[in-house]
Simulated scan of single mutants.
Amino acid sequence: MDLNELMTPDGMGNFSSEQRDTFVTDATQIRQMGRIVRARLAQTEIDGDKPWSARRRAAKVAGRFDRVAKLLEKAAAECEAIDATYGREVVALPQRRAAALEKKEQRRERRALTAKSAHALTQRTLAEAAQGLAADPRMAGQIPAMPQTQPLYVSPQAPTLPTAANDPLPQIHELYKGVG
Results as ranks from 00 to 15, higher is better:
26 D>H: 11
27 A>H: 02
27 A>E: 03
28 T>I: 09
29 Q>C: 03
29 Q>T: 14
30 I>C: 00
31 R>L: 10
31 R>W: 12
33 M>T: 14
35 R>I: 10
35 R>P: 01
35 R>K: 13
36 I>V: 13
36 I>A: 02
36 I>L: 06
38 R>P: 02
38 R>E: 09
41 L>K: 04
42 A>E: 02
43 Q>F: 01
44 T>A: 15
46 I>T: 07
47 D>C: 02
48 G>Y: 01
51 P>T: 14
52 W>Q: 08
54 A>Q: 03
54 A>L: 15
55 R>P: 02
57 R>T: 15
58 A>D: 11
58 A>T: 08
59 A>L: 08
61 V>N: 00
62 A>W: 00
64 R>D: 00
64 R>A: 10
65 F>Y: 12
66 D>H: 07
69 A>L: 11
73 E>G: 05
73 E>M: 04
73 E>K: 12
75 A>L: 15
76 A>D: 09
76 A>S: 04
77 A>M: 11
77 A>C: 07
78 E>K: 04
79 C>D: 06
79 C>R: 04
80 E>H: 11
80 E>S: 05
81 A>T: 15
83 D>W: 05
83 D>F: 07
85 T>Y: 12
86 Y>R: 06
86 Y>K: 00
87 G>A: 05
88 R>T: 13
91 V>R: 03
93 L>E: 03
94 P>E: 06
96 R>D: 08
97 R>G: 09
98 A>T: 02
98 A>D: 03
98 A>W: 01
98 A>P: 00
100 A>S: 15
100 A>I: 15
100 A>C: 09
101 L>K: 12
101 L>R: 12
102 E>K: 05
103 K>H: 07
103 K>L: 08
103 K>E: 04
103 K>S: 12
105 E>F: 12
105 E>S: 15
106 Q>H: 02
106 Q>N: 10
108 R>L: 15
110 R>E: 14
111 R>M: 09
112 A>H: 05
112 A>V: 06
113 L>M: 14
113 L>E: 14
113 L>Y: 09
114 T>Y: 06
115 A>G: 13
118 A>H: 06
120 A>H: 06
120 A>V: 02
121 L>T: 09
122 T>G: 03
122 T>K: 12
124 R>Q: 04
124 R>S: 04
124 R>C: 10
125 T>A: 14
126 L>H: 14
126 L>S: 14
130 A>G: 03
130 A>L: 12
131 Q>K: 11
131 Q>C: 09
133 L>Y: 05
134 A>Q: 03
134 A>W: 07
135 A>F: 10
136 D>I: 03
138 R>Q: 12
138 R>D: 09
140 A>P: 01
141 G>M: 02
142 Q>Y: 00
143 I>V: 07
145 A>M: 04
146 M>S: 00
146 M>E: 08
148 Q>G: 10
150 Q>S: 07
151 P>A: 01
151 P>F: 03
152 L>R: 05
152 L>W: 13
153 Y>A: 15
153 Y>Q: 10
156 P>N: 15
157 Q>S: 11
157 Q>I: 07
160 T>H: 05
161 L>K: 00
163 T>D: 14
164 A>W: 01
164 A>E: 01
167 D>I: 10
168 P>L: 11
168 P>D: 10
170 P>E: 12
170 P>T: 15
